[in-house]
Nucleic acid binder design. Sequence first.
RNA 1: UGCCUAAUGGUGUAAUGGUAGCACUACAGAUUCUGGUUCUGUCUGUCUGGGUUCGAGUCCUGGUUAGGCAACCA
Length: 571
Amino acid sequence: MDEERSLNFIEQIVENDLQEGKNDGRIQTRFPPEPNGYLHIGHVKAICMDFGIAEKYKGVCNLRFDDTNPVKEDVEYVDSIQRDIQWLGFQWGNVYYASDYFQQLYDLAIAFIKHGMAYVDEQTAEQIAEQKGTPTEPGVASPYRDRPVEENLRLFQAMQNGEIEEGKMVLRAKIDMANPNMHFRDPIMYRIITSHPHHRTGRKWNVYPMYDFAHGQSDYFEGVTHSICTLEFVVHRPLYDYFIDKMIEFGFQRNPKDVNDRTHQFEFNRLNITYTVMSKRKMLQLVQEGLVAGWDDPRMPTVCGLRRRGYTASAIRRFIDAIGYTKVEGMIDVGLLEHTIREELKETAPRMLAIFDPVKLVITNYDKAGETIIAENIDGKPELGNREMPFAKELYIERADFQEEGNKDFFRLSPGGREVRLKNAYIIQATGCEKDAEGKITTVYATYDPDSKSGTEGGNRKTKATINWVECTSCVDVETRLYDRLFACENPSAEEGDFRDLLNPNSLQVVTCKAESALRKEMKPLPIDGGVPELHHYQLLKNGFFVVDQDTTAEHLVLNRTASLKDNWQK
RNA sequence: UGCCUAAUGGUGUAAUGGUAGCACUACAGAUUCUGGUUCUGUCUGUCUGGGUUCGAGUCCUGGUUAGGCAACCA
C-alpha cells in the first residue's frame, strides 16, 4: 500500500473549492509568461503548478502571453517559451495573448472614466512618484484628479489616437491616495507607447494597459478559476479583486447567471537556488556581456541551459516535485538538483572509460594482438547492451592511479604494491616506471595475470581497486567541458556590490580526454527533435555524467559534464 | 514607524488539536570489477513570552526575526 502523498496548500484549496461546488466544479488555470526572455527553472516551478493542477483535477491550463509592453517583448521569446513547455512534457489547452483583449480592456477603461473612476493625468512620472507618498506617509492628489468625465474621455481617446506624445499622459484609476496598500494610490491603468510597434498588433494601439489593469481581467475573460502566481503579487491581490469587482459592476460580466463564477489569485513561494541568479535582468546581463556563452550556456538556470547541460525533463520535474510549494521564502541547495539528475542517469546512462590525465601503461608480459573485450554498457544490466573495447600491450591510464610510493590508504597501482583490476579486463601489478629529465613519470610498467580476465573463472579474484584504461591506438580525443557552479558564493543576490564580481572563475574548464573507441559513434551532428537537440547521456566512469553537446561534428566530439560523481576520497 | 506574508534539524518539506515523519546534506560501518552505487546506522528541529485545552508545531494573544510593497515593468 502506497503512502498517500500529502497535498500542497494550493491543492488543498482546489479540493475545498471542488467540494463546495465553486465554479460548477470547473478548474481552469493559466501560465502567463511575458514574452521578454527565456524560461528558467523558476518558471518551471510555476509551470508544474499551473499545468499540474489542471491535469490533476481534470481541468485545463492555457498558455497566455502577457504581452502588454511592446518595448520589451518579441516573437523570438514566444517561440522558445512554447518549445520549452512542450519539452518539459506539458500540453496547454489554448494559446492566448493579453493583446487579444486590448479592445475589451479599452472599452472597460472607458467605462471606468464614465463612472468617474478614472482620470487622465498629465504630470511627469517623477511627479506622480513623488505624490505617491511612502509606505508610512499618505500620498497627495494629482491636480488633474477631478477633471470632468467628458474631458477625460476626450483626452484618453486622444491618447489612443496618437495625438499625445509618449510619456505626456497616463490614465489613472481614482481610488485612494492614502490607502495603506501603495497599489491603491491611484494606480496607472494605461500609458502611451508609440516608440515600439507591438509584436502582434503592430501600430493599432498607442495606449497599452499596465499589468494590474490587464492581468486579472484577462483571467476573468478566459474563465480562469485559480490564478496562481508567486508571493510578490500578494500585495496586488486586493487590486486584482477590485478591478474585477468593478468590471462586473459595469456590466462586463462573463456569466450573467452566476456572480460567483470568477477567478481568485493564490500565491506560492518563488524558487531560489544556491550559487545562481534567477533574475531576468541579471541573466540578460550575463548573456549580453559575454560572461556566459548565451541563454543556453550549460551553467545558466534557463530551461535551454539545463537541457544543454544534460538535465532531462523528468529529472527537472522530479526536482520541482521534491521541493514543494509553500509560502516560505527559502533557498534550495543546488545539491538537490544534482541529486535528481544523478538518480536518473545512474539507471540509464551507458558507462564509458575515458582518461583525463593520461600516462602510458606498458604490460610487459602481454604479447597478444587484436584482443577485444566485450563489456556491458551498464554493469548488471545486460538488457542495455554491450560494447567492444580493444585491448593491447600499451594503454593509457590516469596519472593519479599510479604512485611510486604507495601507502595504506592508496588502493591503486604502485610498484610491488596491490593487485589492481583494469576495468572489464585483467588484473595487473605495477613493476616500475620511467621518468623524463624533470622527474615526471612518462611510462608505467606492469605485468598481468592472463587467467584473470573479467567474466572468466580466474577473474573472480577480488582486488581493492579497479582502474580506468583506454587502448592507445584506438582511443578517441574528446573535448569535455567541465562545469561548476556559476557563482562562487551561495546567494549572489544577497551580497553587496556588483554580482558580476561574484562569478566563479572556474565555472568552466575545458579538458581534452582520451576516450574509448566506442564513443566514435557519437561523432556526427546531433539530431534535432521538435526544435530541440536530442540528449545522449554517458557516464565516464569515476568522472561523472556527460551529455553530447550540439557543437559535436564528425571530426570533433564535445561532451558537457552534467554532474560529477560524489567523491568521498578526499584528503 | 504603515500595510501584507511568513517562521518545524544545516537545507527543503510533512504532521489539518492526539507518537514531530520524509528527502537532501554530513558522519560512521558493511557491500561493491566505479573510493560511484546499494544497504545499515548516527547527529541535528517546532523563533519567543503568556493563554485556551486532559492534550498545542497546530488555536488565541503579546513580542522577535525575515521577506515583499513607494516602475508610465510583469
